[in-house]
Amino acid sequence: MIQDDNDVLEPPINFSMVDEGIFRSGFPQPANFPFLKTLQLRSIIYLCPEPYPEENLEFLRSQNIHLFQFGIEGKKEASSSAASSIPKQTILEALKVLIDVRNHPVLIHCKRGKHRTGCLVGVLRKFQNWCLASVFEEYQRFAGAKSRTTDLRFIETFDVVGLRDCLYGIIHHYYRLAYYASKKRRLLLYKQAQQDMQTYQHYKP
């Protein structure tokens, strides 16, 4: 990506737009910071357990970007029949952050932007009602020869129905009530909705 004749903006490895306000990549290096500035990020979802480098933290502070860290170990696949090392509850918590538009624009990344990032994007696609074949194709496009059967099985078996129903129920309830409400009543409903969203944030299947 070129900004002008002298400045070349370099995106992080495996960078791509996932959806409006959602991006994915491998680990950003200092050379990528000028490019990241153009995204006007509000949040970063970091899926590795290692501490974030101080140079990267300084960049986040300078841009007022909030860091959400979900430490998932990057283990190699032992065999295609082995259980996934990706913890479902951790991915669920990351998904809650990801679908909250208050955190957008947001960048998801792990080390290479393949497996951990691919699993989170995969469950997001299920939440968006993508067919499984398309979800798998997207995962494999980024993972390449490093595609893991255990990751695909994790995505396939991940249940997003309960989370979707919980969120949609809150939205439908308050949109319906607010339609008939006075300004004062809408303010009270807004405060109640905030409390219910706190319940949603602590949802566990």
Rank of each mutant, 00 (worst) to 15 (best):
I2C: 01
Q3F: 13
D5G: 09
N6Q: 11
V8A: 10
V8Y: 09
I13S: 03
N14S: 10
S16Y: 07
E20R: 07
I22E: 01
R24F: 01
G26Q: 06
F27D: 02
P30C: 05
A31R: 14
A31K: 15
F33Y: 15
P34E: 08
F35R: 02
T38F: 05
E50G: 06
P53H: 08
P53Q: 10
E55T: 15
L57W: 02
E58F: 04
E58C: 07
F59C: 05
F59A: 05
L60N: 09
L60I: 06
Q63N: 13
N64E: 15
N64R: 13
L67M: 15
F68G: 11
I72A: 05
I72W: 07
E73K: 14
E73P: 01
E73I: 14
K75Y: 10
S80C: 02
A82R: 04
S84G: 12
T90G: 04
I91N: 02
I91W: 02
L92S: 13
E93M: 12
A94C: 08
L95H: 08
R102H: 11
N103A: 10
H104W: 15
P105L: 08
P105Y: 11
P105R: 09
R112C: 06
R116L: 12
T117K: 11
T117W: 09
C119V: 14
V121R: 01
V123A: 06
L124T: 07
R125A: 03
K126T: 10
K126G: 06
Q128G: 00
W130E: 03
A133D: 14
V135F: 01
V135D: 00
E137H: 08
F142S: 03
F142H: 10
A143Y: 00
A143G: 05
G144S: 06
S147L: 08
S147E: 04
R153C: 05
E156M: 14
T157F: 05
V160I: 13
V160G: 04
G162W: 05
G162N: 14
L163R: 07
L163D: 07
R164N: 11
D165E: 15
D165R: 15
D165G: 00
G169P: 11
G169W: 07
H172V: 14
Y174W: 08
Y174E: 10
Y175K: 14
R176A: 14
R176L: 13
R176W: 03
S182C: 05
K183G: 02
R185A: 10
R185L: 04
L188S: 11
K191E: 12
K191G: 01
Q192S: 11
Q194H: 04
Q195L: 11
D196V: 04
M197K: 06
Y200S: 05
Y203K: 06
